[in-house]
Design a protein around this nucleic acid. Structure first.
Length: 611
DNA sequence: GTAGGGTTAG
């Protein structure tokens, strides 16, 4: 490719010898030989052909000598640029020098390189360069856009570069900067493509920044960046995730006007939207979309059925969920691990662990491999019923199949022991898992602390709090609620108040449960005034009093013969739109009868006015 | 300029 004069070979030869001997820097500078092989580069003696050769052949140690110590890697890069060295060598040197010297050549040189790559149509190299530039995050969008706009590239090429910039931000999970670049590109009139806008939209949905989704979508339409089917599916998903189901449905019309028919993914997304975020009658609406889909001859797939099965299970309708599994079999549509996991969790939440076990066997027969989620579900089901031996048996089975239990698995088991009051077993298992290197999370500590509080082992609680300190696991709102509740139940609401005050000191906000525990505590020691003050305080701080708050106060008032006050609170509760529960009725039977409530055949009271 | 970007289980 290049021809070299003998002098060049000689130069390399000397370079080797001198660098091997590590000639001191000053000696090199004062060498009488003006063309000394290790003389640092200068614009005068810089030899682009030799430099290019060394770079292409990746003779980095020779290059290091050539750069010397008087020339900086960036100055050397400038020599390369000014000598019109080809883009291949420029890129190689650029990457090597940034890595080797740990320097960043700055924005201008980055874009000189990118422009050089653009001339040679080396687009994937530009993408990679843009990726590493964005990764360091040293440059602001304002600076980048200024540099791109003042580069010598054509406008179309600048658009391509900006498009790649947006995509690089998205791939580096710098979504806010990607949105900013999306906006900047409008100001500079650079045209982006769906290749960057679609990934941006999907990242926004993924990160829950759904409000930005609509703005970006509208921006695309206004700027004539033509959306495609995937754009619509992504935006529809965004609307579904934010619960704007009608707007999601409206987008179907938009997509049709752009010539796109809803695909199986579109329908699945909408069905999922209704299942997860629909209000009352959500499964009815989800089913209607499913029927629309069939009517439009769009074939449902395993995801469609899984979504519906999960929806029915969560809607406490496992019967319908099972009938859908049959429907899949009729359609010869293969179910998968997700199908079974949905059903297993459905049956476990109904307390029917036996049925879940049956499903696990069915999976094995169908050669569908159960995963961590499968086992966690059934183990959790057993633990909720206090069947710890069966739960541990499954734990052994999952380990045998090569699955590694996580803290979620162990939390289920620990919670089971705690509910049974078997704190020795719980603490023993906790020690065992710590020994295995499974890190406890805050919910682990919370469930153990709660168990210890219930058995009155406050020493054990304080030990655990010490462990949390040591492991730097911070207490959360739940931790405080458990401790405050425990103190209040024991008739020590003032100690509870101390913890309550500590919450704000450590930056935690109390919840309605925090206030309820304290209100019950002060009622318990006959201090109604403080209890009522706490109710005012909770409302002032934006925590609405709920049915439990009212029940506690009403019960206390009834117990002290203050039935009129109790009645006033009941009215306040109804005015605030709260629905009294059976506790409420049982507590103030007399007042309820006065209010026109009548007992049903079970002896419970119902509000005739509401019926 | 590319060829990735969209749906399901805890």
């Amino acid at each position: 490719m290049f021809s070299f004069s003998p002098a060049h070979s000689l130069l390399r030869h000397f370079n080797f010898r001198y660098t091997d001997k590590k000639i001191p820097f000053l000696l090199i500078l004062h060498s009488p030989l003006t063309s000394s092989p290790t003389e640092p580069c200068s614009p005068q003696n810089f030899d682009p052909i030799n430099a290019t050769d060394l770079i292409i052949k990746q003779h980095w140690s020779e290059l290091k000598s050539l750069i010397g110590t008087a020339t900086t890697p960036t100055q050397f890069l400038n020599f390369l640029f000014n000598s019109n060295v080809g883009s291949e060598a420029l890129l190689r040197y650029f990457n090597w020098s940034e890595r080797y010297y740990g320097v960043s050549h700055g924005l201008d040189l980055n874009f000189r390189l990118v422009s050089s790559l653009a001339i040679d149509k080396r687009y994937s190299d530009i993408r990679a360069r843009m990726h590493s530039m964005v990764k360091t995050g040293l440059q602001s969008n304002a600076a980048i856009f200024h540099t791109i706009s003042s580069s010598g590239n054509q406008h179309g090429m600048k658009s391509i570069l900006v498009d790649m910039l947006v995509l690089a931000y998205v791939k580096n999970s710098k979504i806010q900067l990607a949105v900013e670049a999306f906006d900047c590109s409008d100001v500079y009139r650079y045209k982006l493509s769906v290749f960057s806008c679609n990934p941006l939209l999907s990242a926004l949905v993924r990160d829950g920044m759904v409000n930005a989704v609509e703005r970006i979508y509208k921006g695309m339409i206004r700027r004539r960046i033509n959306p495609n089917l995937i754009t619509f599916n992504t935006v529809i998903n965004g609307f579904c995730k934010m619960g704007a189901l009608q707007r999601a449905m409206d987008l179907i019309q938009d997509m049709k006007s752009w010539g796109f028919s809803p695909s199986v993914v579109t329908y699945n997304t909408l069905i999922n939207g209704y299942c997860k975020n629909g209000e009352s009658g959500r499964m009815f609406k989800a089913d209607r979309i499913f029927r629309d889909m069939l009517a439009e001859n769009v074939l449902p797939n395993v995801v469609t059925f899984n979504t519906l099965i999960d929806g029915y299970c969560k809607d406490e309708n496992v019967g319908t969920a099972l009938s859908l599994l049959d429907e899949m079999k009729r359609r010869e549509l293969a179910s998968n691990v997700v199908t079974y996991n949905c059903l297993i969790y459905g049956f476990c939440s109904e307390g029917d662990v036996e049925k879940s076990l049956g499903l696990l066997e069915e999976m094995k027969l169908l050669d569908i491999k159960p995963n961590l989620i499968t086992y966690n579900g059934i183990i959790g089901g057993f633990c909720k019923k206090g069947l710890m031996e069966q739960a541990k048996g499954l734990l052994d089975e999952m380990v045998k199949t090569g699955l590694i239990p996580t803290i979620v698995t162990y939390n289920a088991l620990l919670s089971g022991f705690c509910q049974l009051g078997k704190m020795d077993d719980a603490l023993l298992m906790h020690d065992e898992i710590s020994g295995k290197g499974v890190e406890s999370i805050i919910s682990t500590y919370n469930l153990l602390i709660s168990g210890l509080c219930k058995t009155g082992d406050m020493k054990g609680v304080s030990k655990l709090l010490d462990v949390m300190d040591e492991k730097e696991v911070k207490a959360n709102q739940m931790t405080y609620n458990i401790l405050i509740d425990s103190l209040c139940v024991k008739g020590k609401p003032r100690k509870g108040m101390k913890l309550f005050n500590e919450m704000s000191e450590v930056g935690l906000k109390p919840s309605s449960s925090t206030y309820n525990a304290l209100i019950a505590g002060f009622c318990g020691i006959g201090n109604l005034r403080t209890a009522l003050n706490l109710k005012k305080r909770m409302e002032k701080n934006g925590n609405l009093a709920n049915v439990i708050t009212y029940n506690v106060l009403i019960k206390h008032m009834c117990g002290r013969g203050k039935h009129m006050d109790a009645n006033r609170l009941l009215n306040q509760m109804l005015e605030n739109g709260l629905v009294p529960n059976r506790d409420t009725y049982d507590i103030i039977r007399v007042e309820m009868l006065d209010k026109g409530f009548v007992p049903d055949i079970d002896g419970h009271l119902y509000n005739r006015a509401l019926c």
